[in-house]
């Protein structure tokens, strides 16, 4: 099993780790800029002011949730629906954090929690991959945050301030860019034949949820289907 190292070597939190995480995040960092710009431009299509859009990017720092609530942003503002939607879209982070925990569980919470507060999908995928390869260093996760947060916030500012109309997300292929980030992450996470059945289960669960359930349930359901299939397929190990 290559998921957890055999040696119970304690995890660390080093400057080298931060630097390594920053280097690994460079390509994703570049991809965050057009998305930040797209978000800033799209936000101005609602009643959000540029200042509010930038504030949202700065303290929420969650692209998919931010794009999701733009559809709800109107007068009067449905505050409860906006907060609940953010939670549901981001609920996947609970599972992601839990998956990272075994690698850094020996580190104190006062280090882990503040760093985890900036965890993105890409940052998580990069960190998990590095840790699966034996580099158990919280600095990697911090490096992903350092490379993404300023880009996301300044991209939002650029989009909000420079765009009077809206940016055509499809014309510029930005939707393909974000999907591509996740698709290449999946390829990078492939660890062998034991992944095939869980991924098939994830596809089936996601398709069913998208067809028959509203909202973003497909994210949780796809994940849970893969988790259960993973247990079932490796029950004899």
């Amino acid at each position: 099993m290559d998921s957890l190292p055999d040696k119970p070597e304690p995890a660390s939190f080093t400057r080298e780790g931060v630097w390594h995480g920053m280097k690994l995040t460079t390509p994703y960092s570049l991809s965050a800029l057009p998305f930040g710009i797209a978000f800033g431009a799209a936000a101005l299509g609602t009643t959000l002011s540029p200042g509010e859009a930038i504030l949202m990017s700065a303290i929420t720092f969650a692209g998919s949730a931010q794009f999701a609530v733009l559809g709800l942003w109107g007068v009067p503002l449905p505050v409860a629906a906006i907060v609940l939607t953010s939670f549901l879209v981001n609920a996947r982070h609970i599972v992601m954090g839990a998956a990272l925990y075994p690698y850094i569980g020996n580190l104190p919470r006062r280090w882990v929690f503040p760093v985890a507060a900036g965890m993105t999908d890409a940052g998580w995928a990069i960190t998990l991959q590095a840790m699966m390869n034996g580099r158990r260093d919280l600095g990697i996760l911090l490096g992903t945050v350092i490379m993404q947060w300023p880009v996301w916030v300044s991209g939002t500012a650029l989009g909000a301030l420079a765009s009077s109309g809206g940016l055509d997300v499809k014309r510029w292929g930005l939707d393909v860019l974000i999907a591509g980030v996740f698709a290449t992450s999946v390829v990078g996470l492939y660890r062998g034949r034991s992944d095939i059945l869980p991924w098939i289960a994830a596809v089936a669960g996601t398709v069913a949820a998208l067809l028959w359930l509203p909202g973003n349930w497909y994210i949780l359901i796809g994940g849970l289907c893969a988790g259960l299939a993973g247990l079932w397929s490796s029950r004899d190990e």
């Binding site: 992601m96 991924w199 994210i219």
Partner: peptide, 8 residues
Amino acid sequence: HTAGGVLV
């Protein structure tokens, strides 16, 4: 596997 499934 759940985490991988979320990405999928």
